Amino acid sequence: MSALRIRPARPEELERVVELWLEASRWLASRGSEQWQYPPRRGRMAEAVRNGECHLAFLDGHLAATVTLQEKGDPEWWADDDPTAALYVHDLTVRRPLAGQRIGARLLDWAGAEAGGRGRPWLRLEAWKTNRSLHRYYLGQGFELLRIVDLPHRNSGALFQRRSAMRTRPAGTPE
């Protein structure tokens, strides 16, 4: 399996992040999904890039995916959960020609290691409420469905979490 190189996105790469999101949006629409069928939230994406939270993943030197990893969850979803106990995954997208190569799974494993390295016992995410195939995917990746929050003004709200990969030594320390 080829190495996946993950690094923070740079401000000049915002359009690459947006294009990955748009590619995923078009693919979802082609499958009849309502998920992400709105204009990309460039402001939110730009802020994540500025804050070093948005990452790009490269496979054999080519852009393969993006994921945003944040220290705080959306309070409408995670108000009943200790926000300091987790890192939160957002906007995970893999280029469609690379589907089936476990890139998403590898990004989730990387995010879990990041959470563990920061002393966070959980990796959390929310998914579109009606995207049952996405729910099955996350369950297959070791996540547990905590609950579905049904807010009339939001289409997401299926809340998942799994244990992070807690490290016994600081990140970057040789094993």
Rank of each mutant, 00 (worst) to 15 (best):
M1K: 13
A3M: 13
R5C: 03
R5S: 03
R5N: 04
I6P: 00
I6D: 00
R7K: 12
R7S: 14
P8I: 07
R10C: 13
P11L: 07
E13Y: 06
L14I: 02
R16N: 15
V17D: 00
V18W: 13
L20M: 11
L20S: 07
L22N: 08
E23R: 14
E23M: 15
A24N: 13
A24W: 06
S25M: 15
W27S: 11
W27D: 15
R31V: 12
G32T: 12
Q35W: 12
W36S: 05
W36N: 05
Q37T: 10
Q37C: 11
Q37I: 13
Y38V: 11
Y38N: 06
Y38H: 07
P40G: 06
P40A: 09
R41V: 03
R42I: 12
R42G: 09
G43W: 15
V49C: 10
N51S: 09
N51H: 08
N51R: 12
G52T: 13
G52A: 07
H55W: 13
F58D: 01
L59A: 10
G61E: 07
A65R: 00
T66C: 15
V67A: 03
T68D: 01
T68I: 10
E71S: 08
E71N: 06
K72P: 00
K72T: 04
G73L: 05
D74G: 05
D74N: 11
E76M: 13
E76G: 11
W77V: 02
W78N: 03
W78D: 02
W78P: 00
D81N: 05
D81P: 01
A86W: 00
Y88N: 00
V89S: 03
V89Y: 01
V89E: 02
T93M: 10
R95C: 05
R95P: 05
R96H: 14
L98V: 15
A99H: 13
G100Q: 10
R102L: 11
R102S: 10
I103C: 07
I103K: 02
A105L: 08
D109A: 07
W110E: 01
G112H: 00
A113H: 01
A115P: 03
G116D: 01
G116L: 04
R118A: 02
R120Y: 04
P121K: 09
P121V: 12
P121E: 06
L123W: 01
R124H: 06
R124K: 10
A127Q: 04
A127I: 06
W128A: 08
K129C: 15
T130M: 10
R132H: 07
S133W: 05
H135C: 04
H135E: 01
R136Y: 14
Y138W: 14
L139N: 14
L139G: 07
Q141K: 07
L145D: 10
L145E: 12
L146W: 14
L146K: 09
R147S: 09
V149W: 02
L151P: 09
L151F: 11
P152W: 06
H153R: 15
R154D: 02
R154E: 05
R154P: 02
S156D: 04
L159Q: 01
F160C: 06
Q161P: 05
Q161T: 08
Q161W: 03
R162K: 14
R163D: 01
R163L: 05
T168I: 09
P170W: 03
P170K: 15
P170Y: 04
A171M: 14
P174F: 12
